[in-house]
């Protein structure tokens, strides 16, 4: 088999926020600590983590649209080269597209049609948009409306359409489907899958493991700002093929796999333990877990656990 080209390679990525507490007293919140993801051509990779774990920051970091008080660390490689702010500016919206989490990302003062076509008026792009909209049950009139005139679900479909307009090499979909019906979710997901099958790399950021397992090739498990495991989607068929205790706990919590839960909640960024963030909830936790833990290869995947 031919080695597939790596589209995106993120190493040791971190994001922290500066916050003012009481007057001029500053604190630094490390929201993402160790994040490692790679996406190859034609591959769909899902980053799965619970809400509030800082997943969206990953998307914004790749595009260079983090807020001003955020500091980024680590390296992002795109298409074999380091992704600098200058390249980010050039590539975003062209080769790299984002399907954002919030419908507030649409320009409220621009009509839907020209917004998605980016002002282009030629026949080809019009025909293309008509076809995409048809597939999403959006009438032609919608193109002449403003975002506020559409329902939440319609705006959501408009956002997804933006990714299908060009020929992106990397699609970042940040929770693209909340508030949509199940049938529509499946359709949206199948379109991302199609983009991947045509050769693009797709990075799907979601909290929904079941949804991710249906479409993705690989799943990266994200917990409290750290990627704890990188596994093939097929590894989730059984608990034994998973590597990290947190991924195993997720597996056991599936209704069809026992519906068991572990106590506690994901730690808040200010109260993160040293070493493994899952330590306090983990039955295998030892003194070693409180040190820095390497992300190493185990059985074809990667894991950040000393016991795996």
């Amino acid at each position: 088999m031919k080695e597939k080209k790596t589209v995106l390679n993120i190493r040791d990525f971190s994001v922290s926020f500066e916050q003012y507490e009481r007057g001029f007293h500053k604190t630094v919140l490390p929201v993402i600590r160790n994040l490692d993801v790679t996406v190859h051509e034609g591959e769909m990779v899902a980053v799965v983590g619970s809400s509030g774990s800082g997943k969206s920051l990953l998307a914004h970091g790749i595009l260079g649209i983090l807020p001003y008080n955020a500091t980024m660390g680590g390296e992002i490689w795109y298409d074999g080269e380091l992704l600098t702010p200058k390249r980010q500016k050039m590539l975003r919206g062209n080769e790299i597209v984002l399907v954002p989490q919030s419908i507030a990302f649409l320009d409220p003062l621009m009509k839907i049609g020209s917004q998605i076509r980016k002002g282009k008026k030629d026949k080809a792009s019009k025909a293309r948009l008509d076809k995409i909209f048809e597939g999403y049950h959006l009438k032609e009139e919608v193109q002449g409306l403003y975002p506020f005139e559409l329902s939440g679900g319609m705006n959501r479909r408009v956002l997804v359409s933006t990714a299908l307009m060009g020929n992106p090499k990397l699609v970042i979909a940040d929770e693209p489907t909340p508030g949509l019906h199940m049938d529509m979710v499946r359709r949206v997901m199948s379109h991302f899958r199609e983009l991947a099958d045509k050769g693009a790399g797709v990075l799907l950021i979601t909290h929904d493991l079941e949804q991710a397992l249906e479409v993705a090739d690989r799943v990266v498990v994200f917990y409290a700002g750290t990627t704890v495991e990188d596994a093939a989607a097929s590894d989730f068929q059984a608990q034994e093929t998973l590597r990290h205790p947190y991924s195993k706990a997720l597996w056991r919590a599936l209704p069809q796999n026992g519906f068991q839960f572990i106590k506690g909640t994901q730690p808040y960024v200010k109260e993160l333990p040293d070493g493994c963030p899952f330590g306090p909830r983990c039955e295998y936790c030892t003194a070693e877990c409180q040190k820095e833990i390497a992300y190493r290869e185990v059985q074809g995947g990667r894991v950040r656990c000393v016991h795996a």
């Binding site: 983590g49 619970s50 809400s51 919590a253 519906f259 839960f261």
Partner: peptide, 14 residues
């Protein structure tokens, strides 16, 4: 529980 992760889902339902 659609917007929750699996562990929280199972915690709350139990």
């Amino acid at each position: 529980s659609t917007m929750l992760d699996l562990i929280t889902q199972s915690q709350l339902w139990s």
